[in-house]
Design a protein around this nucleic acid. Sequence first.
RNA 1: GGAGAGGUGUCUGAGUGGUUGAAAGAGCUAGUCUCGAAAACUAGUGUACUCGUAAGGGUAUCGAGAGUUCGAAUCUCUCCCUCUCCGCCA
Length: 421
Amino acid sequence: MLDKNFIRENIEVVRKGIAAKNETDNIDKIVELDDQRRRIIQEVEALKARRNEVSGKVAQMKKAGEDTQPIIEEMNSVKARIQTLDEELKIVDTDLEGVLLTVPNLPHSSVPVGATPDDNRVVFEWGEKPAHDFPMKAHWDLADALGIIDFARGVKVAAAGFPFYVGKGAQMQRALINYFLDQASLRGYTELQSPIVVNEDSARGTGQIPDKEDQMYHCDRDNLFLIPTAEVPVTNYHAKEIFNEKQLPLRYAAYTPCFRREAGSYGKDVRGLNRLHQFDKVELVKLVVPSASYEELEMLRSDAEYLLQQLGLPYHTLLMCTGDLGFTQSKKYDLEVWAGGQEKWLEVSSCSNFESFQARRTKIRYRSAESGKTEFVHTINGSALALPRVMAALLENNQTPEGKVIVPKVLQPYTKFAVIG
RNA sequence: GGAGAGGUGUCUGAGUGGUUGAAAGAGCUAGUCUCGAAAACUAGUGUACUCGUAAGGGUAUCGAGAGUUCGAAUCUCUCCCUCUCCGCCA
């Protein structure tokens, strides 16, 4: 959410930013509602001040044994007017809040303007695509032959997109999770184990609702959402809190399963592990002072990239253009690994700065050491990493002519085996 | 799920209709004192909205929402949460 005063004072900047994201703005509506709101507040608060003044007087008069009847009658009309105005104010407030929630975050000045994925910039490349002298298989064929991922039984037991990992497949998952979490701890992140359901407020806080409810699984009975990412519970962990500046930055790492309905994404790129309804992910979340947020974003990005380098997975880093930024993001890097069997880049991490967009919604603030005033923190997060596509790339890139798969050195202490198959 | 108790500021904890944004203590910040620290003393110390160039006003806020009243932290209703006992259970 953007600050409505900021919007009022920077109408053209906001319009431009929203247009760069290919979204339409409701700024006129916001200004109109805000004007209404201020008019009502001024009138109703003047009346309330009068009421407070008079009710103090009534107390004194009663004590003095004077007749309070006339003044009480006068107050009855004031009371009625206050009631009417309060009701109007509530409607305007609700409307204004509703419109503000639909305004996307603005892109940072360093983000390239563009409309399509072609406008994303490759800012970093690492590793070499594996060149094997035998036909490379896609991971779904490898996994099937090795018996380490069971998609078919997942369909039987749950639905498409909910695979079983079996034997060494399951152990690989566990190894990756532990490895990622250990690395995060080493780099100063506090490990957090969070709920994997959240309430409506939390979902609204990070920007999943309004509008993206359809992408989440929902338990109607208890009005809880299955989390699409640990970003939601972990960011909301400190909702409505105010920190001292010296308590920041806060850095958290959390492993959770993630649930996404992926409504409307049937068809392309959904084979095997490429797109699932349930998947595992280790997420990094930071709460930082605004002046440090872009530096912290770069650090977070390198924390994620480091894992890919250690795993020996060739990857590149994309700086996403304005048109490819999400609703909540100011700047975003995507890390994509090369999956040699499919000959495709697969997104395994998305590292974003949300500036104060989520903090304003979740009311996460800090007291500035300099001004003594409360300000909103900046929130940053990124996957480090999402498991399925890492697994897919590992299987495909590390396959042998015999259809076995070599386990990366860094994972072997965790898996206790060096080869699958 | 059933029965009971309760939710007040950073914390402990007063307060049952009329200057109560809220006693008192603790904590925190600054100052005095000190070589320094502690102690002591003094002062300050929630958040948000709104009017104002500012100084400074005003309004709201005692779990959330609604109601009664000229006036509510205090009374009524609904909901949420916590605790105790019972039930159920990984």
